[in-house]
Design a protein around this nucleic acid. Structure first.
Lengths: 192, 192
DNA sequence: AGAAAGTACAGACTTCAGTCTAGTTTTCTT
DNA sequence: AAGAAAACTAGACTGAAGTCTGTACTTTCT
C-alpha cells in the first residue's frame, strides 16, 4: 500500500531530490515545502525535525537486503553468507550513497528525539540476519552457546562501527574491501 | 603552557559549566558568551561552530589514559593490558560523562567541518595504545604479521562502535560490562 | 619609526529550524 | 445525518546559530 501522492511522500520525494542536488546542509525546509508544494505545518506534522527525514535512508539498506536475499540463500556456509551480505551492502553504499548523507543519518540517530531506525528490529535488515544466524546455528556452523540475538547485535554493531569510521575518515579508503579483510577476523569467534 | 585566562579558555570553561548544568541543547551561544564575558566575534574566531566545542571532550579520555598508564604497565600480558585500558575508560565514561554530551561528541565528529579529535593520532589515547600493542608484538604475545597501526585502528574502531551503540541505546545497558564480555572475543584474532 | 599585515574582539544583522494558532477536511459515534 | 473528535494543512512568528563589518591591538618588514 505505497501511496505515492500523499503529502508525506511528496515531502520525502522533494527532500531527497534536493538533498542529492545540493547536499543536506544547503537544503532548507522552506525549499523542501516549496518543491513539494506543501507547508511548514504539514512538514512538522509528519516529521519531528529535518533530521528525522534522514531515517528513511536506512530503508535503502533493507531494499538491498530484500534484493539479495535469494542469492544469499544459495551460499553453502552460514558464515560466508554473513560476509556476502556485508559485501553486498557496503558495495552498494560505497557506490550509490553520498557520504554526506550517510554521515547525517548516523549523526541524526544520536541526537534525534524521534525513531531510531537503526535499531528497528523489524526491518528486513535484522530479519535476514536473524534467519541466517539461526540457520547457521541449527546447521552447526555457528556457535549455538550464544543467543541468536546476541550474535545479530554484535554483527550490527560491527557494521555500524565500520560505517561510522568510514564516515569520519571522509570515505578515503575502500569500504567494502576494508570490511572484507576485517569482518572475517572480528567475527571468527562465532564459528563453532 | 596551559593559560587559563585567555579568551578561548574562558569560553571553554563557561561552555562546559553550562553544558553540565543545562545540557548541550539548552545552552545557547549567547549564554556562553555572557557567562564568559566575551562576544560572538570571539566565539566564532576560536570555534567554527557550537559543535566544535564538543571535540574537547575527547581530551577527557586522554586524561584517563594518562592517569592509568603506570598501572597499565604493571600488567603482565599485553592482551590483558588492552582489556584493562578498555575497562578503565568505559568505567570512567559510564559514571562521569553525561550520555547527552557523549552522543553530541560522536554526532559532531560526523558533521563538523573542523578538526576530528577522535582521529588525532597524537593524542595520548593513541600513544598508549601503540606502545602496548608494539610491546606485545615484541614480546610475542600479539601477532606481528599485522602492523601495529592496523591493530590500533581496529581496537579504536571497536571502542567507537561500542560507544556509538551505547549512545543510540540511550545507555540502557552497562557499558563496561558489555564491553568486557565482547572485547576479548572480537579482539581474539590479534593473539599469536 | 611608520606602514602593512595579521590577529583578536565587539556586536548588529541575517537566515533558517522549529513553534503556534487557527482553519479545513476526514473519520468516528450515536 | 449531525455533531464531535481527530487528522491534516496553512503560514505568520520566534529564537538561536552563524555571518558580516568595523575597530583595536600586535607583530613584522623596510
Amino acid at each position: 500500500m505505497k501511496k505515492s501522492n500523499t503529502t508525506k511522500s511528496k515531502i520525502v520525494a522533494a527532500a531527497w531530490k534536493l538533498f542529492y542536488e545540493q547536499g543536506y546542509e544547503d537544503t532548507t525546509v522552506d525549499e523542501i515545502i516549496a518543491e513539494s508544494k506543501t507547508s511548514k505545518g504539514s512538514f512538522y506534522h509528519y516529521f519531528k525535525s529535518k533530521d528525522e527525514l534522514m531515517g528513511s535512508l536506512s530503508y535503502l539498506f533493507d531494499e538491498k537486503y530484500e534484493e539479495i536475499s535469494p542469492e544469499v540463500r544459495t551460499i553453502k556456509n552460514s558464515f560466508d553468507r554473513l560476509l556476502f551480505m556485508n559485501s553486498a551492502l557496503f558495495g552498494m553504499i560505497e557506490d550509490s550513497v553520498s557520504l554526506d548523507l550517510l554521515g547525517r543519518l548516523y549523526s541524526s540517530q544520536l541526537v534525534t528525539k524521534g525513531e531510531k531506525q537503526l535499531l528497528d528490529y523489524n526491518r528486513m535488515y535484522y530479519k535476514l540476519l536473524r534467519e541466517v544466524v539461526s540457520d547457521g546455528q541449527k546447521a552447526g556452523e555457528i556457535r549455538a552457546d550464544l543467543s541468536t540475538n546476541d550474535i545479530v547485535k554484535t554483527y550490527a554493531l560491527l557494521e555500524r562501527g565500520l560505517l561510522y569510521d568510514w564516515c569520519i575518515c571522509n570515505g578515503d579508503y575502500p569500504l567494502k574491501d576494508y570490511a572484507a579483510k576485517l569482518m572475517p577476523q572480528l567475527l571468527a569467534f562465532i564459528k563453532v
